[in-house]
Design a binder for these strands. Structure first.
Lengths: 219, 219
DNA sequence: TATAAAAATGACCGGCTAGTCATAATAATT
DNA sequence: AATTATTATGACTAGCCGGTCATTTTTATA
């Protein structure tokens, strides 16, 4: 939790501060990110960071929470029951994700980089919690689909859920591996993750949906 | 490449040296791994490392090459054409992988940890090469299956290949997330990655094959 | 055994990090 | 205007790291 001092900052200074650290954590993993380099870049004293936050982890945790909250504003209102099948719901999540990415590029970059922190020892605990939560969400979604007879019953929900989770991560990884997106460059230029690649992303999502449909839908 | 001095070492000393570093790189990512801590653990001087190798990267690269070569001895002789379909071949790779794991636990742990080095900045180049090679292998396999009419034609080989690659990584990740395997503990105890979990692994592989069959096989 | 070649050593270097804290500058209150 | 509370500062600490190299120890040769 930020200290009171941080909340009393003038909004534009708070934003400058926040953005600089979002950028750093979007470019480097938690342990590789350097507070020292960010404060020098910002032109403020290092001590200031510790006027606002208890330590590096406190700052990082705050950014995660804020980023997740903002993204939730984009996708939180989507309800599975408003869609005829899971895959249209799944696609809608990506469509709203693109909007979030366009309007909050830095936070989007930051959140995408989060998955790279699996093995940053300093935040193992934090990360494991997030992972478990996410995996559980996917598992629950799969369970619902099985319950209403849409997904296959011969594979455990745990496996289908985890498979789905990994497949959704693979979409981004594929765009990265194929050179369609280049976060490092986008961050430098202040552009969204999927800048000018929104259609490529959604086409890839559609391909993955085609595969996943065949994989998980009840025959 | 190791220096001449390294090859002249007595076999048991060379093995002790190699094993200690395999262990370190199996527990930590490249940048987090500490030569200093390994040499103190080995009871040798830090300068010795630089009598054997040019630098940290040279040592790491050597271990990767050696590990890959040993594993190739286990799976290299398997030919797709010796199996009636891709999935039996796929399963055979895992069966031989288990044997490799049993007989070379440290190298197995080391190779499994490799994928965590995606973002270690010091070996970005090395890692990207390995990734590209691996992805290409999967893509080529998929192309062959498409050519003989076994895999679907409506999804690009690139996507199917990448999907397959990610799915195979997901198998290990799932066992990890579900707590079936615990590399950190296994390494401490000198046990293989899949110690007493060989059956769990192969059952998971079978589940994934069931899913992947439905996903990629031509209808 | 004396000499020469090879190998092992560890103190030391420069560079980096997160975090601290007495001091100074600024803002708010009286 | 004077006093008090708040905020900003940056030199400093302790702890890491990879890598170096003059020196010593060990091994091989003559």
């Amino acid at each position: 939790m930020p200290k009171a001092t941080f909340n009393k900052l003038k909004p534009d200074k708070r934003k400058q501060f926040t953005d600089a650290f979002l950028r750093e954590f979007a470019l480097h993993s938690y342990d590789e990110a350097s507070l020292t380099s960010v404060v020098s870049e910002l032109g403020i004293a290092k001590g200031s960071v510790y006027q606002y936050f208890n330590d590096k982890l406190d700052l990082f945790t705050f950014l995660v929470g804020e980023g997740a909250a903002v993204k939730a504003n984009y996708i939180g209102h989507l309800k599975r029951t408003d869609f005829p099948d899971f895959w249209l719901y799944f696609r809608a999540l990506y469509e709203r994700g693109v909007k979030f990415d366009l309007e909050n590029p830095l936070q989007s970059h930051f959140l995408h980089k989060l998955v790279d922190n699996i093995n940053s020892p300093s935040i193992q605990h934090l990360y494991k919690n997030m992972l478990d939560q996410t995996v559980t969400v996917f598992e629950k979604m799969v369970e619902s689909e099985i319950a209403i007879g849409k997904f296959r019953r011969d594979i455990p929900a745990k496996t289908q859920g985890f498979f789905l989770y990994k497949a959704s991560l693979a979409i981004n990884d594929q765009l990265l591996a194929l050179g369609e997106i280049d976060p490092k460059k986008s961050i430098e230029k202040g552009l969204p993750v999927f800048h000018k690649k929104e259609e490529v992303l959604l086409r890839t999502v559609d391909q993955y949906i085609e595969i996943l449909k065949a994989a998980l839908d009840k025959r």
